[in-house]
Structure formats: structure tokens, C-alpha cells
Design a protein around this nucleic acid. Structure first.
Lengths: 157, 157
DNA sequence: TATTGTTATACTCTATAACTATA
DNA sequence: TATAGTTATAGAGTATAACAATA
């Protein structure tokens, strides 16, 4: 127990060197995101849903009949990585892949009745997960955080 | 061009369903983090440094003589995953692993002279990267974001 | 020619287990 | 017994390339 106790403070208490790793937003984004993803996995373990698969289901639920390519675009995924996940969800009886009426290249996605029935419970679990890993933030701080994060990765305000 | 244009707004412009995927902070953390990690990789491609390896170097630079186990703890990594990365950095002539004076189990880490010489340039590149992916945020917003992110993953305020 | 969807494949990051050598 | 460090290995996530079918 010697170098372990060398603290992060440089001069004043609470001060942080501006070039320090701890002061980099990218690093802190990564750490916070990792914590959130981990907590998500714990909460949704019984449903066997990971962040990606839940995101797919949630978006298909919000937009029934969405195309696979559009789902990829909205989730920022490559279709090559989406394909096996869709196959998995279809095999589990959660998603249906149907042919498009006009364009025969297109696969149109909907939730099965089973998945539609389960979604409210899963959404409730996700709310519980968010409340847990965000417990130190006020309602107002959460709204601010949401706005700033969307400002980063979407062009919009 | 049909379902692609179905917009995200529900009622009022700028409104968002509170249960929507877009309104979940975990999801937006993941997207923002992915964007940042990607932009980091682009900026530091010539240095062949990824976020993890840069983080290791930066922390060793801030705390010369740090133990491998302590580096793991601070970066939230498993030692099993750290080992091959340290080996890589050592092989590239960036990090030295020396024996501890008292405890012969411990490996003590320092940057080589080459790495110390390179660090200021790399730190400059990281600043440029942060300025780029955070360009839509004001100085004040960046400070707020940093505080909220650290509030999430560290217990401290 | 471009797009949709798929397969194959490789790389990175992460997690667990098993092991050694020390303490 | 516990800790520091390593190796091996498996699981996810993501990237590219190549392909078939269709527009």
C-alpha cells in the first residue's frame, strides 16, 4: 500500500490537469458507456437481450414494417453484422422477416405477437436499468446529458 | 424514398417519446462513445495508437513507476487483457517493465525516452480529436458533460 | 450500375479459467 | 491463503470483401 494511494489531485482538491486522461471526454464517454452496457446486460440477462438486440426490437416495435437496411442505418450498423442477429431473433420467434410488396430485394421487419406482448415488460426493465446507473443524476441533469450526447453523434440539436 | 422519410418526431417538433430508443441515455452513450472511439482511431492512426493503448501510455506518463495491477484498476481492465497489450508496447519500444525493489511479483512500468519524447505530440493529436468530435459543444457544455459522465462511472462528484 | 441482403473472415475488446511465483 | 502477472480460450462487436438477386 504505497503508490496505490498516490491520488489524482494535482494542486487544489478537485482540480484536474487539463491534459490528464481523466479530463478527456472521450475516455469518460467510454467508461460511462461500458458501465451502462454492463448494467444493461445484467438487467436484461433473463430476457437474453443485449443492448444491440434490444435496440433492434425497440426500433422495429416503433416502426413496424421497417426495412433491414433502414434499421441498419438508424442503428449505425453494417448489414453484414445485422444479418446474423436478425436470424437469431427470427429463430427465437421474436421477429418476422417478410417480402416487400414492390421491391423483391427488400425484407420487411415486424415483431411477432410474442415479442409485442413482451415489449412492455422489457421496456420496464430498461427504465429500471437507466434509473439505476443514472441514480446520481437529477432529472434535469439527465435531460442535459441526453441533449449533449445527441449533439455529439447526431448533427441535430 | 418512402418509409425512410418517416420522421422521429411524435407530436411537437423536437418532442420525443420517453420510452423511445432515441430517448434512452444508455443508447446515446453508446452511439456517442462509438463516434468518439472511431474519430480517435482516425486521428491516431499514424501513431498506431488505439484508445486503450493511448490510455495506458498516458497513465504511465502521469504516474511513472506505476504497477501493472494498479494500471488495470485505474483503467477498468482485467490483467489478463492488459498483459498482451503491455507486451506489444514493450516490443514497440514504448514501455519498460522493470522488477519492483521490494515485491518480486510486481512489474513496475515507465515510458521509454522515445515514448516520453512522442507524448506531447500525441497529446496534441488527442486534443485535436476531442475538439473535432465535440465541435458542437461549447466550453461550458463540455465541462458539464465531463462532470456528468464522471458522476456516472466514478462514485465521486 | 447501384442497392439489398447474405456469407465468410479477421481483428479488437472483454470475460473466465488455469497456472506460476511470490507474499 | 491471497496477490501479481501470464497464457489460453471463448464470446461479442465491428470491419472488409465477395457474392446473388433485383432494381
Amino acid at each position: 500500500m504505497n503508490d496505490i494511494d498516490a491520488d489524482t489531485d494535482r494542486n487544489a482538491p478537485g482540480a484536474m490537469a487539463e491534459d490528464a486522461l481523466d479530463a478527456q471526454i472521450g475516455y469518460n464517454l467510454k467508461r460511462a458507456s461500458a458501465l451502462a452496457m454492463n448494467d444493461f446486460a445484467v438487467e436484461l440477462a433473463d430476457a437474453a437481450l443485449r443492448p444491440v438486440t434490444y435496440g433492434m426490437l425497440a426500433l422495429i416495435d416503433e416502426r413496424p414494417g421497417i426495412r433491414a437496411a433502414e434499421l441498419c442505418r438508424r442503428l449505425g450498423m453494417k448489414s453484414a453484422n445485422m444479418a446474423p442477429l436478425l436470424a437469431e431473433l427470427e429463430e427465437r420467434g421474436l421477429v418476422e422477416r417478410d417480402d416487400h410488396a414492390d421491391d423483391r430485394r427488400v425484407r420487411v421487419l415486424t415483431l411477432t405477437q410474442m415479442a409485442r406482448n413482451a415489449m412492455p415488460g422489457w421496456r420496464r426493465q430498461v427504465r429500471r436499468h437507466e434509473d439505476r446507473f443514472l441514480q446520481r443524476l437529477t432529472k434535469k441533469e439527465r435531460a442535459t446529458l441526453l441533449r449533449l450526447l445527441r449533439l455529439i453523434w447526431t448533427g441535430e440539436d
